[in-house]
Design a protein around this nucleic acid. Structure first.
Lengths: 178, 178
DNA sequence: TCAACAATAGACCAGTCGGTCTAGTCATTC
DNA sequence: GAATGACTAGACCGACTGGTCTATTGTTGA
């Protein structure tokens, strides 16, 4: 793993667990065991630059989980169930204390201006990916279903986090699209 | 409005808009036009103390919105629709840039320990209030319905915030309990 | 009128923040 | 084997953080 990759994944982890502003650069550098000079070599704009890279990194992970869940699914309902269970497992593996992978980094970022737009685009990509699967699987209102699913897992993750318990994510599937 | 009240509502507003760590005490004091001494008189434990008070303040507001929406409702569906529209209006009034009233303050709070438990209790109170209305209105799985509603508005608010548009909140009602 | 206490007021402090800067290391060139 | 440039390394800096402290003002009851 290169220095750059180590920086990104460490930052993603810490930003999600503690928030952007609550995480100091020194903390990231210590956890990744990278000196300050290297950070500003790879990310000249500093912390904000690093956060953007971390956000993109996480977005890619999420998109892959969506595809992994829906590609082999025989129906939208099956896909949703698989997706929710995958998220619950991810949550339990090592994310209990972390914010939703999608929004965490993108929110209390530096002076929203740029970051909010980035978050909006990332959400749109995720919804589009889900909607494509929904359409392929014969769902009537594919866009509506995708948006509802995103909203639910977003809120579900938040509730799971406060409870330190992923059960609510598992219950979502059968309740959303019975 | 007393100094104490002005501190709480100003803090609630700023913490929600920017996050706990991104908001400095000096900023709160300037916005509320309160000198530092007064803050530490009313909240001896400082920023964390103030955040707790602000969180409770917001929780009360949310509970009242729930009751206002469901008490006069002839059915669960009607109540949910009213509730979602009330939230959308609240969002549009002056909250476009703020995080979900419920979770915002409670999350990136100081060293989770105490704050996470507080958030969990607040969510539980809200779900309990919704579930009571659901039961009264003859919903079969009242607890499940309440939890689903909370999850949805939580995620819906987040998505609305990134889009700066409350439409997704309005669409929730008809999609959740058709 | 005067204690007594609540509340206001802001100067001040140590610690930490993100960021800059210079020096040094290493692999890859010719 | 010297030169080059990507990268590592960390000392250092001004700005700002949350919090403390002392002084002052306002209000109340005797």
């Amino acid at each position: 793993m290169t220095t750059r990759e180590r920086l990104i994944s460490t930052a993603a982890q810490l930003f999600r667990a503690q928030g952007y502003h609550a995480t100091g650069i020194a903390e990231v550098l210590a956890a990744a065991r990278v000196p300050k000079g290297s950070l500003y070599h790879h990310f000249p704009a500093g912390k904000a630059d690093l956060a953007r890279a971390a956000a993109d990194f996480i977005a890619e992970v999420m998109l892959r989980i969506v595809d992994d869940a829906f590609l082999p699914a025989p129906s939208w309902q099956h896909g949703v169930a698989t997706f929710c269970h995958k998220l619950a497992k991810l949550f339990e593996r090592r994310e209990k204390a972390s914010a939703c992978p999608i929004s965490a980094l993108l929110f209390d970022g530096p002076e929203e201006a740029d970051f909010r737009a980035h978050a909006e685009a990332t959400f749109a990509r995720l919804i589009a990916a889900m909607a494509a699967h929904a359409r392929r699987l014969g769902v009537e209102d594919a866009d509506g279903a995708a948006e509802l699913l995103l909203v639910a897992i977003e809120g579900g993750w938040t509730l799971a986090r406060t409870r330190r318990n992923a059960d609510v994510l598992r219950r979502l599937a059968s309740r959303l699209f019975p």
